[in-house]
Simulated scan of single mutants.
Amino acid sequence: MPKTAPFEEHTDRYEQWFETHEAAYRSELAALERLLSPAGYGIEIGVGSGRFAGPLGMDVGIDPSAAMLGCARERGIEVVRGVAESLPFDAATFDTVLSVTTICFVDDITQTLAEAARVLEPDGELVLGFIDKHSPVGEIYQETKEQNPFYRDAVFVSTDELIEVLEAAGFTDFEFVQTIYHWLDDIDGPEPIESGYGDGSFVGIRARR
């Protein structure tokens, strides 16, 4: 069942996070920009308020939260209400599928990635951004999740766990970037962006079918 209630009820708090942690947000954007190809027709799964889809050039965004979609629409995104496990699009519709900090909220990661593979063109690319559960930020989020309305029901995954599911869904040719090396409240400028994973709390993965 989609975890929409916190996003419907705390939209202002969600948006405020990006204002309060602008340096971390900009670092995550910059990391994902390194992975994305510049052209093509793209969708963000779990578009939220459009904070990533807009700057990263996605054309369409899908999300189960009406409140989030309203914000994304104001940012110029064509929005569709729906869930990651059952995308209302034909096969081979998109050149790019983006999903940022959404994997921890879906009901079925395997089905989500299978759907991402289905709607991608044969040579399309999937780009994921997420907080690794074994990272410093991931561990704090898990320890304090009961105090956070957004993360209370989240299920965090590690990069290695996600790679296994991606491979099972038919994805190959992985490329990794990482950033966010400090606790979010301590970040007041751009964080380094490095290849690989295992050090930064925010990990980006590009994979191809």
Score class of each variant (00 low, 15 high):
P136V: 12
Y151W: 07
G70T: 09
A114C: 08
D108S: 13
V127Y: 01
V97N: 01
I163G: 01
V100Y: 13
I77L: 12
K133M: 11
C104Y: 07
E164K: 11
A84K: 00
I77S: 10
V79P: 07
E115S: 00
T112S: 10
F130I: 04
D132M: 06
V97K: 00
V100F: 09
G138A: 09
V155E: 13
R152M: 08
R75A: 07
Q142V: 06
E121P: 02
P122A: 06
L120C: 03
R75E: 05
I77F: 12
L87K: 00
A117E: 14
F105H: 15
R118T: 15
L128P: 03
K133E: 15
L113Q: 07
L98H: 06
E85L: 02
D108K: 12
E125N: 13
Q147M: 14
F150H: 07
R81F: 01
R152L: 08
T101H: 06
R152S: 08
R73L: 05
V80M: 01
E167T: 12
T102K: 08
F156E: 01
A168D: 11
T159N: 10
I103E: 00
T101R: 05
A114H: 11
E161P: 07
G76V: 11
L166T: 04
V165L: 13
T144C: 09
D90N: 12
F94E: 03
I77P: 04
V127T: 10
Q111Y: 04
T144W: 13
C104A: 07
S135Y: 04
E115F: 01
G70R: 08
V80E: 01
